[in-house]
Structure formats: structure tokens, C-alpha cells
Design a protein around this nucleic acid. Structure first.
Lengths: 340, 340
DNA sequence: ATTGGCACTCAGGTCCACTGAGTGCCAACA
DNA sequence: TGTTGGCACTCAGTGGACCTGAGTGCCAAT
């Protein structure tokens, strides 16, 4: 059984190790933290912690560093995530408050989180959920290629190209446009996808083919969630902390470009909505990320589905302040923006 | 004066150094390349090259490595960029040929270049140049915030939020929409920007204010070039070659996130349209990029302005094959796609 | 202009001894 | 039972001494 003080020692070890990057010994602990006991006592506690595999010694006669399990216990203990300073709150508000559209808001958000945490920041693009179709526009690129644009009342714009089975001229395209706007206009995305999936028995077979091609493209778009996109910032922080990644940051860099990996990871973190979820070190091994921790929190922008934002960094990171920053920004997005 | 053979020696040094990462000595040269002369002769040539500052010795008694100036001479000599293999050409065609819209084409392009060159690849988003306005859509986000969407006949979609001086209801917005479509619809971008800049003397002053706000937002969009965006891929390659960057790759990573830097750099390379332009090492120092070379070539997609694509990598890179790849892809985009 | 020979240089590796931070354990103590 | 001081032990890291080998620079001969 680990005593209360042992846990305090673990905290001290994590903090000092994160700060100094060097294994921390018993003497250093009594010096930097005011436990009322001697170094020998701390050593006894450390022996305990080592037995529990919460800390480990890189080599026989050196200080200890936290294990993944140690970080996990440390983080779980961190109920008292210290809130952001007033200045930081203010920074969030002024920095994000001015954003005009969603793209800009997310771009600013992710840069802000990168700056606050000094880590790689990631934000998942929130899908437009229960938005309604406002307008459908068709743009002819070639006789048999049409750009389909779907505009929602929440301000989202989706575009995609449809390949047509037959060429169409401008007049026909206009007719189709009107027809499709009739079908989809002012409907919720799911409904629009539904009503676009019908047949077009009342027009000439050649036109019906074209209409069906266009409608199915639009239906796809209506179904498509934009949650499959990530916005990233702060890659420089990754390079800065490179030495903390035992292997190399290659895996992380690849995970960023292969957004799928991070998205799956975010998906698995979906539990416990508005708290900050943390995955530490080997817990991410199945994603090709070793020595890597991922924190994330859910947020919700009015009119859009719940989404996530977070940071990716070395296992040896400042969890306390990173969690505080992630939580504060996620809350800001969910609450303050929700009020408007 | 540098003799013909001296230049051959320079070529050999560049090639061997790029391949081996190690200073190359006179003996290694006679072994790996079949000059018909002895090592001592090569040494004489090397002394010459050193006098010209084309190569340098890291320390007194070691082989030589090319200087920036040496790379420059090497690259300028490379008139005979070796063409891509048939297999590679095929790869380009199959990989890019399937792309449906511009976004996807560029995303594929940049990934392809990254893969071919094993470097960080960058492509500049081509602006839509002389396109025409097809449709203007307004979406009310709040009573005094409207999302303005500009759709062009080349399939470009621009969106931006306008803040209104007075709130408007849906009916008024519909009227404004019709009016603005009248003004801008089917005009070239520049013309549309022009005609949107007029007064609205015929409506109530409150409405005129709103209309002017909307019109000026749209006019801005019509003027906005999308050339101020970059698409990037292959960051992992940067990490892989990290040791070749003396300082660190931090500057490069920052330049990628701060797209402005790379865009300015591309801007300066605009000369000599369809050849591959190369900037080597210190030539980029003013951009905060040391030990870094940038190659780029112009390309032109029908209906859009000329733009550039290229790669960023360590000074010590395989110029020959990288230039070949950049050139081949740029040509493919310009020619093959132009035929459709 | 080219070549072989030779002295010289110097980065990098190996060996070794030393140092100091830090542990583990024990016996004494409250 | 938990805490403490003491002490022997371990071992990474450091710095000096030495050696090796790749490679140059130069010269005299061809």
C-alpha cells in the first residue's frame, strides 16, 4: 500500500523530472520540497514506489524517473487542475473573441493552444450536425463534370465534383439546380440526404441519370461529416521537445499527416465528455506513438456537433498546465461562444 | 581558371558527399570514378577547387565537402537533368489523373512530390485569375453577421463573414442577395469588385449601409487571391534528414507554419518560368533558412493563374533527381491537364 | 601536367583513473 | 512501527593520454 506521503513523493518526482529532465534523487527532493523528513525516509518511500512500478531507476545508482504508470497515477490524482490565471483567461478571450468564421476560429484556437501548452496542438473540425441545407449550387466545369456546392444555414460550405453519365448544357443544369434546391433546400442534412436519394421518374431517362448522379453526390456531401479533418499547429514545439521522444518524432509527424491515426485516437477518448482525457505513453503504442502522451477535451460550438481539441507531446510533459489550458480553451469554446 | 576535369571532380565530390554524408578524399574519388589519373592529380584539382571556394575541408586533414558556391556551380552545370523513368512518369499519371477537384489534385500532387523527392514538398494554391462570378450566397449567422459566399465558374468557393452596421431580417437579406447577384453575377472577378464598390443611393439609408458592408466584403473576396495559401506534405522527410541541417529544422518548421515566408521566397523565384529554379543554402539566409535549399518550378492549370510547386530540403540533397521530379510534375500539371 | 613518395595533421576511438551523485542497508532511536 | 544518520557500494560521466588511419601538402622526378 502506498502511503499519502509516498504519493506526495511521486508528485515531487514527476514535477522535478519534468522541470529538470534529469532523474531526481532523494536528496534533491528534501531540498526542493519541504517534507519534514530526512532523505533516508524519502528513500524508503521511493523503494515503495519502485516496488509498485510507479518510478524506475535508469541505472543502479541514479535518481528515479516516473514510469508510464507513475504518470498515470500522477495525472489521476490531479483533481485540482489549477485554473488559468486571469491574464491567461483574458488572452483566450481577446484572442478568440475576434474570430469571424469557423475556419478562422479553429485556426486561432489551435494556435492559441499550441502557444499556451508549448506543445503540438490539434483540433478536430466539428461537423455541422443538425444544420439545414440553405442552398445548392451547381457549377459546370466540363460538359460532364459539375461542381456541387452545398451551403448550410450554419455557414458551412461543402464542395465536391460529380462526374455525369451524359453531358448537360447550361439550361439543363439550371433546371436541375432548381429541382435539387426544391428537394434539399431548408431541410436538415439527414433529411436532405434522404430526399435526394429518390428516383426521378417524371423526366426523360437521360436527364434522370444525370439528376441521380448529382443528387447522390449531394446526398454524400450531406452525409459527410467534417469530423474527419484536423487542424494542427505548433509543430515547432515538437521539434523543440524532440529529445524527449526516445525513438524519434517521426511517428508523431506521420500521425499528423496521416490524420486518420489521430482521429481514431480522439475517437477512443470520447468518454467523459467535458473533462480532459489523457492517454500516456504506451497506452498509445497501438497507434505507433511511443513515448507520446495525448490530452484532449470535448467542446461544442452552437449549431455543430461535439468535437475535440487537444495536444500531443512527449510523455515527459507538464500535464498540470497543459490540462488546464486544454480545459480552459475547450470550455471557452463551449460556453462563452454558446451564449451568443 | 578551373579546368574541365576540375569540374568533373567537383561533380564527383558533390555526388559522393550527397550519397555518403562524409567528406570525400582524393583516394575515394579515383576509386569510385574512373578518371584516368592518380590521386595526386586529383589532389591538385581539389586544391584548385578549394582556391575557388567551391569545396572546403571541415578540418585540416580530411576530405572535402562542397560549399554553397560549389553546389551552385554543380546545379548550374546540370543542364542534363536526367528525365524520369517511364515507370515514374506512369506513376505521376495514374496518381494525379484520377483527381476530381482542385483541392484533391493539389493534395495528391504535393504528396506525390514528397514521395518522389523524399523531401518536404510544397505547392502554392493557384489563384482563380480571370474566373467569373457565378453566384453570390448570403447566410445569416446572427442578425448583424452574414456569411458571404462567392462562387466562381471555375469552381472556386470563397467565404467570409461580414459584420453589419444594422441588423437585417431574412426578407431584407433575400432582397440584398438578389441585388448583389445582379451586380456581380457573371462578371470577371476584377469587374465584379469594381461594380460592387458603387453607392446604393436608391434605397433607404439604413439598407444602403448594410448593402455597402456586404458589397465591400464581397469585393474584397473577389480581389483576394488564393495564392496566399500553401499545401504541404512530407514533413516526415524533414525529420529524416534532420542531421543535415546544422542548426536545426526549427527554422524550416516555422517557415512552413508561417506560410508567408515560403510564399515570399516563392515570389522571388518567379523568374525563368518553366525551368526549375534553385536557391541554395545561404542564399536563403534572409528568410531564416540556413543549410536549406529550395527548388521550385512554375505550373499552370487551365483557368487559373500561374503558380509554383517545389521542395524544401537540406543543402546536401540530391539535386539532380529532385529537380527532375519537380520538373516532371510541374510539366504534367501544365501540359497534360491543359489538354482536357 | 602528372606522378610517387613522404612527412605532417588531426578527428575519433580506446583505455584508465577519478569524481560525485545517489542508492541500499543497517543499527539506533522515538 | 516509522524515522534517522552513517557507511559502503555502484556507476555514469569526465578528462587526460595515447594510438590509429585517413587524408593532405609539397617536392622532386618523369
Amino acid at each position: 500500500m502506498v502511503s499519502e506521503r509516498s504519493l506526495a513523493v511521486l508528485r515531487a518526482i514527476v514535477q522535478d523530472y519534468v522541470a529538470s529532465r534529469e532523474p531526481v534523487g532523494s536528496k534533491a527532493i528534501v531540498e526542493r520540497h519541504s517534507f519534514g523528513v530526512s532523505a533516508a525516509t524519502i528513500r524508503n518511500d521511493m523503494a515503495l514506489l519502485e516496488e509498485e512500478e510507479l518510478i524506475a531507476a535508469p541505472h543502479t545508482s541514479s535518481g528515479r524517473i516516473p514510469t508510464d504508470k507513475g504518470y498515470r497515477v500522477f495525472v489521476d490524482q490531479l483533481t485540482d487542475v489549477r485554473p488559468m490565471s486571469r491574464a491567461q483567461r483574458l488572452a483566450i478571450e481577446t484572442f478568440l473573441g475576434e474570430s469571424s468564421d469557423l475556419d478562422e476560429l479553429l485556426a486561432r484556437t489551435v494556435r492559441l493552444v499550441a502557444q499556451l501548452t508549448k506543445q503540438l496542438a490539434v483540433v478536430q473540425y466539428p461537423s455541422f450536425g443538425s444544420a439545414r441545407v440553405r442552398h445548392v449550387e451547381l457549377v459546370s466545369l466540363a460538359p460532364d463534370r459539375v461542381l456541387c456546392i452545398l451551403i448550410t444555414d450554419s455557414g458551412q460550405v461543402e464542395q465536391r465534383v460529380a462526374e455525369l453519365p451524359n453531358p448537360v448544357d447550361e439550361a439543363a443544369l439550371s433546371a436541375h439546380r432548381a429541382r435539387l434546391n426544391d428537394l434539399a433546400g431548408n431541410r436538415a442534412m439527414a433529411d436532405a440526404a434522404e430526399s435526394l436519394s429518390g428516383e426521378f421518374a417524371d423526366v426523360a431517362p437521360a436527364d434522370a441519370l444525370v439528376l441521380r448522379a448529382l443528387a447522390s453526390t449531394l446526398a454524400d456531401q450531406a452525409r459527410a461529416q467534417r469530423q474527419d479533418r484536423l487542424v494542427v499547429a505548433g509543430a515547432a514545439n515538437l521539434v523543440r521537445t524532440e529529445q524527449d521522444f526516445a525513438g524519434s518524432i517521426l511517428g508523431v509527424i506521420e500521425a499528423i499527416e496521416e490524420q486518420v491515426v489521430l482521429l481514431r485516437l480522439f475517437g477512443e477518448m470520447a468518454a467523459d465528455e467535458h473533462a480532459v482525457a489523457v492517454r500516456i505513453g504506451r497506452e498509445n503504442a497501438s497507434f505507433g506513438l511511443g513515448e507520446t502522451s495525448v490530452l484532449s477535451s470535448a467542446f461544442e460550438i452552437p449549431g455543430r456537433d461535439i468535437s475535440r481539441l487537444g495536444v500531443v507531446g512527449p510523455t515527459r510533459m507538464d500535464y498540470s498546465s497543459s490540462m488546464a489550458a486544454v480545459r480552459a480553451v475547450a470550455r471557452y469554446l463551449s460556453r462563452t461562444l454558446g451564449e451568443n
